[in-house]
Structure formats: structure tokens, C-alpha cells
């Protein structure tokens, strides 16, 4: 029986034999140019439909809003003044000196105590524009997977979490199971089209997989042929990196250390701590501010982590009830 919390190798935990190393993303938001190539490359590869109603979302240059059934990569845009930059720099520095970020790593490198060093860069910008490409976290302990009653969601040999469209019955249990709000059922009729068209080349393709749960597959259908996921392949600046999860975490830690050494102490990791509420994530991020700023939960927790304890309690309750019933029966007999 597999684990429901704590550090583990999720593929082995799901009983894959001779599986390849766990795969994952490292999204380094410090070099993201907000071009959204990842969003388009993802939709194009997965044939996900356009969503939204073609209006400005009132959120800087972000017009897709959030991850959802049809948007599996999403770029957030956050505009900030100097005060916030100073705060982020302070909070990032504190994370390092405490050694325990909320969900980040206990590092960069424990031997580097940068908290005492004056690493204020020559000029703190009076303004900044954060961009960050979000994606499914492919948690070590995935709530969506653990609550799925049909076996539609499964853990792949690469340690990722994937919905099988042909198995999913659209019950939606997984939607509540995800602590990041990533997985969603696809609704129909999302596609707005132009008012009138002369002789369309072709009918717009029917929206696939309506009503069933949809999310990033980490391009499972590319990984099996040893190809890079579409978003990481397209990313012009390598802000999205793809590779073995251990290597990604290592790279991410080194990058945070590098930025801290430059005085950019606002840098911190997200998802790289295997002791967190989801056992660490397959997709790790380098952020330049608190997770909430990017719309990410600061302390996500997989709901099924508590299952064993709940089952134990429920088991005791059931035993008690059985005992009580038995007692009542015996008394009745008596």
C-alpha cells in the first residue's frame, strides 16, 4: 500500500517497476519575459480550446486568468512599487536565515548564512513587473489522484499525475481534492467567435473532452517518446526548464543561492520542500515574492494526508458502534 504523506518516490509508491527518474519542471520566474509562448504551445499541442470571453480581465497583461480545464499553463503579471520590493527582499532574506520557508527549501546551501551580509544591490528598483508561468504541480501526494474514485487519474512512470480522458466520468471529486485549484472540469460553449465570417475554411473543431476533468499532463504523450513538454520546449529564455526532478531541484537551489549572492534576496523556492503538505511538488518554482502575490497558496496541504488518521478515528467509531449495537443486541437478548 502506498504512502499518503511525507517524502517518497511517487512512481515507486504507485508500484511502477524499473521506472525512469521522476520528471518535473523548474520555472525560474526571474528570467520570464511574460511572452506566453508556454500557454500557446501547450494549447496547440493538447488541442485545448480558447477559453474566456475575449475581454480584458483587468489584470495587467493577463487575460486568461488562472489555470483551468483549458489553460494548463498560465502566466501571471504582477506590478509592484518599491515598498513591496523592499518587503520581498526582506522576507526572502528571512526565509533563508530561518532556514524554513513556508513551502520552499530549507536551503540555499545551509553553509551559506547570508543573513548577516549586506547584500543590498546598488539600486533597488522603484518599480517591477513580475511574470510567472504557473502549471500543475504534479504533487508527490496528489489530492486529485488520491480522491479519484474511477482510476481516471493515475501516477505515471515519470512520477507525474495524468487524467485518462477515456476513463474519467466527470464526477468532479478531484476538483475539490486539489489544494492548488488546478484541476477543473471542462465546460462547453466557451468559444466566442467573430460576428460573421465569409465562407469559413473549416468548422471550428468541436471542443474535446467536455464535462470531464482536465489539467496539465506534463505532456505524458511526449515524455513516452523522450520529447520535451511543449511549454518547456518553446520557452524562449529557458524560464521553464524540464528534466529529472532531482536535477531540477538542485538547479533551483543553486539559482536561489546565486541571486542571493547578488543581493537579490527576494528570490525563494516554491514546492521544493518534501516535508511540506503535499510532499513537495514535481513542478518547482523560483519566485521573487510571497506565493500569495502570484496567486499561489502559501501552505498547500493535500486533503488525503489526514486520511489514515481519519480512517483510524472512523474505524474506532465504527468499532464502538458495532460494540454498542452488539451490546444492545445482547441486552435485548437478555
Amino acid at each position: 500500500m502506498g504512502q499518503l504523506s511525507g517524502p517518497t518516490d511517487p512512481s515507486a509508491d504507485a508500484r511502477w517497476e524499473d521506472h525512469p527518474p521522476r520528471k518535473g519542471f523548474f520555472t525560474d520566474t526571474s528570467i520570464c519575459i511574460g511572452c506566453k509562448a508556454c500557454e500557446v504551445a501547450c494549447k496547440e499541442w493538447n488541442h485545448n480550446p480558447q477559453d474566456g470571453n475575449l475581454e480584458l480581465l483587468k489584470s495587467s497583461y493577463d487575460n486568461t486568468g488562472a489555470l483551468g480545464a483549458s489553460t494548463w499553463r498560465h502566466v501571471a503579471f504582477v506590478e509592484q512599487g518599491q515598498e513591496r520590493v523592499v518587503q520581498a527582499r526582506e522576507s526572502g532574506r528571512a526565509l533563508v536565515s530561518l532556514g524554513m520557508p513556508a513551502i520552499g527549501p530549507p536551503a540555499p546551501a545551509a553553509d551559506q548564512d547570508l543573513s548577516e551580509v549586506d547584500t543590498t544591490p546598488p539600486d533597488t528598483p522603484d518599480f517591477r513587473w513580475l511574470m510567472s508561468s504557473d502549471v500543475c504541480k504534479h504533487c508527490t501526494h496528489a489530492g486529485c489522484l488520491d480522491v479519484c474514485p474511477t482510476g481516471a487519474l493515475f501516477r505515471t512512470e515519470f512520477g507525474t499525475v495524468v487524467v485518462q480522458d477515456d476513463v474519467c466520468n466527470g464526477c468532479g471529486t478531484c476538483v475539490a481534492g486539489c489544494p492548488f485549484g488546478v484541476i477543473e472540469r471542462r465546460s462547453d460553449g466557451t468559444v466566442a467567435v467573430a460576428a460573421q465570417r465569409e465562407e469559413p475554411h473549416a468548422q471550428p473543431p468541436a471542443v474535446p473532452n467536455v464535462g470531464i476533468a482536465q489539467k496539465c499532463t506534463l505532456c505524458y504523450d511526449r515524455l513516452i517518446a523522450d520529447e520535451t513538454p511543449a511549454c518547456a520546449k518553446a520557452c524562449p529564455t529557458t524560464s521553464i526548464k524540464f528534466g529529472d526532478h532531482d536535477h531540477m531541484v538542485e538547479t533551483a537551489r543553486a539559482r536561489v543561492a546565486e541571486l542571493h549572492a547578488q543581493g537579490l534576496t527576494e528570490a525563494r523556492l516554491y514546492g521544493a520542500n518534501e516535508l511540506d503538505g503535499v510532499g513537495g511538488t514535481g513542478s518547482v518554482f523560483l519566485l521573487l515574492d510571497e506565493p500569495e502575490v502570484y496567486g499561489l497558496p502559501p501552505d498547500p496541504r493535500v486533503p488525503t494526508a489526514d486520511l489514515p488518521r481519519m480512517y483510524r478515528r472512523a474505524g474506532m467509531a465504527v468499532a464502538g458502534m458495532v460494540a454498542a449495537a452488539a451490546l444492545a443486541f445482547l441486552r435485548g437478548r437478555a
Partner: peptide
């Protein structure tokens, strides 16, 4: 193209 239009839908 729907994929590009949805990213910047309106003149601003």
C-alpha cells in the same frame, strides 16, 4: 487566431 486573440483581446 483564437489562441493569440484570447491573450490580448481588446484595444487598450
Amino acid at each position: 487566431l483564437p489562441y493569440l486573440s484570447e491573450l490580448q483581446p481588446e484595444m487598450f
